[in-house]
């Protein structure tokens, strides 16, 4: 059986942002891609999502304090 990393209870929800959404995120935080938290190309989640370098992932985490929290990571090599 293949490992389904999204099946794990600790796994958040991932979404690849399209270029419009990515730009609006950068505008909202007033930062560039290099300031965002990073995620490696070799990361199992990135491989499973087939994301490319420079893509921004929207990560919706289950949070004990806020219920749901949104986090962003940029894919790097």
């Amino acid at each position: 059986m293949d490992i389904d990393i999204f099946a794990n209870r600790l796994s958040p929800k991932y979404k690849i942002l399209d270029s419009n959404e990515a730009d609006s995120i950068l505008l909202r935080f007033k930062c560039s891609r290099s300031n965002l938290p990073k995620i490696r190309m070799a990361d199992p989640a990135v491989i499973a999502l087939k994301a490319n370098e420079g893509d921004i992932l929207e990560i919706t985490r289950a949070s004990k304090t806020a219920g749901e929290a949104v986090y962003y990571r940029v894919v790097i090599r």
């Binding site: 059986m1 794990n8 209870r9 600790l10 995620i39 990361d43 989640a45 985490r61 990571r73």
Partner: peptide
Amino acid sequence: LKIDEVDQTRTTTNDIIETYEVLGIEIARN
């Protein structure tokens, strides 16, 4: 995790680096 009988949703290890390598950074963080 590759074994068929195993429930992937609940099975965990306490090794953080191993989790990072197999399941990725976000799960390692959690």
